[in-house]
Design a protein around this nucleic acid. Structure first.
Lengths: 210, 210, 210, 210
DNA sequence: TATGAATGAGATTTCATTCAT
DNA sequence: AATGAATGAAATCTCATTCAT
């Protein structure tokens, strides 16, 4: 039981991990179920006990990765904030988090490629798969919007249309950073970053209720 | 000569058009070369005289469609502007154009699906294919940035970092509208539109040099 | 287990056999994988579970056929030798075996066509495929040279450079018989046979150590 | 007229030459008509004005090359013979010629690959193509057997079954050298050469009428 | 004579998915 | 639960050859 559950969880993780490795090295399209299964050390048929298909697995994987990224971005920001003499403003926090994410994307382009421009979809779509019958459930992504909400509350800051702001920011950032990092179009990421930061501050400041 | 060239152009157009119909009805993935060719009334092999593969055709098609869309958006805006008693401001023009595009996207979701979130890539990447040897050349996409530049000049308005502004706006709009229209996430397009307009005005106004 | 193995062996044999039939009737080039598979009653994809491609299958088939031919030639020779009052000489044995093979070739030209001039390659190249991972193993070809060696030993005959002699004889015979049988060039096989026999005796006698 | 004929001959030569280059570099199978034509600087359709198909071209090419090889082998032998103090024997002449050919084969394996084991076919089959209607005729291969015949006559040597001897020798040599040079099976060419020479002398001596 | 656009049959191969064991 | 043999649809793309110009 416990053991069996353990075993199952391990298999699932193993499949996810080997898929992750293959997607970020040889690419999603070129990765086959056989590849994923054999690298995970299970039979091809076993794959289907854990995932519906390659696409479903990718979705779960992206959500997981995006979630992890956001968690570490927030953690890093909090650590940074704690180190400052003065408390930092909310727009600063936003910019910090975003800078952190951009750096991660720039360092790890295969992941950026994998996530594509689907970050907002990860955050604003419910985890359907988690409730799928017969599927092993997983922690699920953090509720990023709630996290931000809490942060704002703690800072006694109110933001208009928070969900829409978040959505807009995330799509804007995800999309532009994707293009700038992967294609250098129309400018490279280093050149684009200050411009993007200015835009973010503009939108955030505008949303802060006086 | 003239006849052959004519014929070739017609074949190419025919292929593009049948691809367009298939992509927007049964979807890109499910469309096969055989489908495209047979619907265009040519042999499968003929397809390869005009396009490298399905992906190349899609790229050309998207550019073409995006180009057409922008052309008609601008035309519509000019017509509208001409009808007004007072000259309209630059941010108004931006908003008008974008509203126009959103409406087209909303009306014609298959095209939105096809264009995906690649609009900025269409506008900021050079047309390599147009110069491809042995390929039939086509008009090429309008230079949208130049168009805007001319418009600003005529209005005696200067905008800081125009290219970056355009890029940011386009990616932001394309991405958010895609999500809002196709998934209704996190809100439907009607609800999102005013919010988006506010964001656009904010960014444009900020970029206008006093 | 036993059942599955059985089944696999049968499928492989079935594929080989249907390939054999097709190669010898409509020819190697005109035979398609689809033909082979459908005649064997398996799916096209299944073919690829057993063989790398058409060429690999042909090689294995040729080796198998050549092997079978040599086995029956030797057996026939031994039977014949046993019937004689006097023991027959080693050159006689060679000539007998070769005559036997020539008759088979003459009777069954499609096989000759299939084997082409590659007989020595069948005998002197190691069976790599037999050990191929994931492949169903098969008996493998008889070691013809060893067989001859044993024969000579039993007859207390020593032959200089046996391997080279065998190689030279086989290539000479295979090549000339191929041309004589299939093209009648420069003479038909019946006319050529006595000449060839004389050549064989010459080379064999020269190699026998006194 | 003369000019047109010239032009045609040149085109044909050009096609043959570009085919030769392609066959010996990327291989016969991988060479396409398009490749041959484009390298020869003519249109694809033009190819068919000169040759029936790739196979026909190959045959003509092989004959041509084989012819050239034999011509230069004989010339070299005669030059060598002239340099010797004593006249050399007929078997020596055979061995010289064959050694010359082996060296050429060893030096230029792509040609050996191209000729395959078809040398005797080149020499003993009539040039059908030369008489093909509407085809440009070419010098045709030297009649090797006649050449040898003349040589023997000049040396006052009579050989039994000359045609069969030549055929047997050529097939034997072509086949064994092909295997030894290209595969080193069962031994490399250097090791095999002396053995082959002995065989040749044996067969030639046996055929010389006393 | 020369061209090269068009043809379209056809070959190979992959791979997600199923299902008997 | 796990396996992996079998499936067979499907897809791409090539290439010899024709024929209108």
């Amino acid at each position: 039981m416990g053991k069996i559950e353990q075993n199952k969880k391990q298999k699932r993780t193993s499949l996810l991990f080997s898929a992750y490795e293959l997607f970020t090295t040889i690419g999603f399209d070129k990765t086959t179920i056989r590849d994923i299964a054999s690298r995970a050390g299970v039979a091809k048929g076993t794959f289907y006990l854990y995932f519906d298909d390659k696409y479903s697995l990718r979705d779960q994987l992206i959500r997981h990765i995006a979630s992890q990224l956001l968690i570490s971005a927030c953690a890093s920001m909090e650590e940074y904030a704690a180190q400052q003499a003065e408390p930092i403003t909310v727009p600063d926090k936003f910019v910090y988090i975003i800078d952190y994410l951009i750096d991660r994307a720039d360092e790890n382009r295969p992941i950026l490629k994998l996530i594509n421009k689907d970050l907002s979809w990860c955050l604003f779509t419910d985890d359907i798969y988690a409730a799928a019958p017969g599927r092993i459930d997983e922690p699920g992504s953090i509720d990023f919007v709630s996290y931000i909400l809490n942060m704002l509350e703690a800072d006694h800051v109110e933001i208009r249309d928070l969900r829409l702001l978040m959505f807009t920011l995330i799509d804007m950032i995800n999309s532009t950073v994707y293009d700038a990092v992967l294609f250098g179009e129309p400018v490279g990421i280093e050149e684009y970053k200050p411009y993007l930061n200015r835009c973010i501050r503009l939108l955030v400041n505008d949303a802060i209720e006086e």
